[in-house]
Write a protein that binds this DNA or RNA. Sequence first.
DNA 1: TGATAGATAATCATGATCGCTCATTTAAGG
DNA 2: CCTTAAATGAGCGATCATGATTATCTATCA
Lengths: 252, 252
Amino acid sequence: MFAQERHHAIKKIVREHRRLSFAELQDLVEVSPATLRRDLTELEKSGDILRVHGGVLDPAYVRSEISFDERLLRHSSAKKAIAKKVNSLIPPGSSVYVDAGSTCLEAGRVLLGRNDLRLVTHSVALTSIALHGQAEFLCVGGELRRLSGALVGGAALGALAFLHTDFALLGASGMDNKECSTTEVSEAEIKRSILERSQRHILLADFSKWQQPSTVTFAKWPDFHDWVTDQTPPAKVQKFMKAQGVTIHSAT
Amino acid sequence: MFAQERHHAIKKIVREHRRLSFAELQDLVEVSPATLRRDLTELEKSGDILRVHGGVLDPAYVRSEISFDERLLRHSSAKKAIAKKVNSLIPPGSSVYVDAGSTCLEAGRVLLGRNDLRLVTHSVALTSIALHGQAEFLCVGGELRRLSGALVGGAALGALAFLHTDFALLGASGMDNKECSTTEVSEAEIKRSILERSQRHILLADFSKWQQPSTVTFAKWPDFHDWVTDQTPPAKVQKFMKAQGVTIHSAT
DNA sequence: TGATAGATAATCATGATCGCTCATTTAAGG
DNA sequence: CCTTAAATGAGCGATCATGATTATCTATCA
């Protein structure tokens, strides 16, 4: 049996069994443990299977079980730094739209502690946290998109049409030297609508997303006034942003 | 069972039970106490569960419910029974409006497990839980009222104006032989609007609220088609409800 | 406040699993 | 027939997961 055949066979077996111990898998694929391990590391790298200590899981199955990742509530240091920086950019008395997504959530968390702001969001996670915050708070309704924990769709867009804020804090799943992008059409629609209905547009994104464009474009660079990032970008990028009219704020 | 599977299972169990003693959890996850504790410390670190001396809590609940231990735990068995009864009244394919409040939250929690329903609410707590549910889900936006964890105000009423559901599940803080009442004007406005925009009106309230009228009236008895309660009311009350056209469903 | 039972954390031993390295086999091409 | 490169299998030390044991801590009640 050739390597490719084996890979195929393993994928199929894992899909069918949903979970197998290493020994079980070895019984089905007659090959030495060493080779099987090698195969598994490859298949894991390509995302076809999910390895755990002692066995293998079907990733599709695991994902369906955890629709929305509560790791969203985890705060990385980069996100915390960005959040702190953003906070210093928002003057008292402002109204601020906070996008869904983990980076914006962290920023929202900080802003919620102030009592001189008015926040608006369509993020379920932020609304949850807002119960214990100080700021005035408005949640835009919509259909629940479980994958991102956001309220989206026509209802959300309709509600946005009546709103207006001083600041918009937007996240992005990827950026390159052309534009900012996200994973989903409905998310992109909301982002565009937010941009239309706010004065100053601030992008919140750690630098690791640079040159990692995502599926759907929601804005060109000149659409933004500011970009808050975790680390200072290279001189080349800085120059580019200056030309586009974007002010860079590095959080470090 | 692999470690990750266990983590997964534990998360799910905690979400479903909201609170468990260590022993209860150990019965459900068959593993030595030492390993279970290790799992719990990990899950706590990632924010998936909340540990307390002697047991485990669902953090989503603690965050969302106001005065968690007091209100939620006191009548929890009554609320669970009511929720179960309500579930049996809702046929597949229905759209259901779920009011804010702890009794309705419990009912919403049960309904969320079904994949043949469309739910609508203005409750932050329910929306939070909905991230892990099955049903289609729409959240009505509005200003956050922290005391009750509800989204209220003009924005909410405006959004409601475009909606229509088959069922309305409403809670009440108090009832007497005249009417049903709640604590706050903005809540009452929403409730009235929900009544206008749904077909069949079901009141969810344990019997302890009988003869305990609250501040703001939001409905007279004939406005309701059904009343789901935890214990069978006295014959006198039953007769009264029959005269008003309200069907009583006792959960016991 | 202090005692006590139960709960928790820390430590250790054990067995299983993992990834690395190296020798061997296999296949392809000159 | 030989060379070379890729794939494979075996061995080995390192790592990880687990359960038992012990010590520490915490809530509760007197």
